[in-house]
Amino acid sequence: MKSAKAFALPLIVPLLFLILWHVMAQVVRNDIILPDIPLVWDIMVSPHEDLISMGTLPANTLISLARVFAGYLVAVVLAIPLGIVMGYRPDVNTALNTFLGLFRSIPPLAWVPLVLAWFGMLSLADVFSVPIGPAYPYFHNIKLSMIFIIFIGGFYPVLTSAIHGVGLVPQTLTDAARVLGANQVDIFRKVLLPYAAPSIINGLRIGLGVSWMCLVSAEMLPGSLSGVGYLITHAYTVGRTDVVIAGMISIGLVGAVLDRIFRLYEDRKFVWKRLTK
């Protein structure tokens, strides 16, 4: 009885939402303002269909994912070591915190004009001179400007979580490591990083979420001819609201799946954190 309730409870609101959507669509009777559920559903369940001559929904989603990961990777590679050092060394923190704080509150989208002036339509394929081949479309579709926007989105959550996580490391642990013969690299890799790992993973999860959300803005930049974000904008200009909604749903689903993966990993890997008082 209880498990049935636990199963049903999260479904009630989405179900009401779908009913409302259907009823509103029946009232509006205009597919451009609000297409009915079956129209969107048809797009979602036919992954091989070429949408508004822009390729399939999964193909566009894949391109978007590749872009997000490129920008996110840069953010992670820079933010984790920087965050750990800033968390461990108060002098480094003091030196950098104000500077980094100035940029923190600038929304990623505000960077667009500058970023375009700097990078134009330069893509990874141009930077690494990738030869024409099966990998070329992916590299060609990842523009430096997009990487930058996604990077800005992912950088701060990861940085903040690393600083925070390292700040929580009890001095007794670093003292114990030093007395046992640890050098600075050992302390970094074998004490600070593992202790801060749960907090860092949490930041990675939030950072990936923000990066994914920056995607649509990034894909609206000139030079973009694919990706879910672009698919949505393009579908809007040709009045295909059903494709817009299908694209939105894919963005939402992918984001939720990525988030879920991180949470599962956190639950399995960091049992000690929950059980340690």
Partner: peptide, 29 residues
């Protein structure tokens, strides 16, 4: 230095390592 070892009042074991890995960590360093 390694010739002088120390045991602290607060719990100083590394919570993500099991007992044997904790015990051997000085040798790992």
């Amino acid at each position: 230095c390694r010739q002088i070892g120390m045991v602290f009042q607060e719990y100083s074991l590394f919570p993500w390592l099991n007992v044997v890995d904790n015990t051997g960590i000085g040798l790992e360093f």
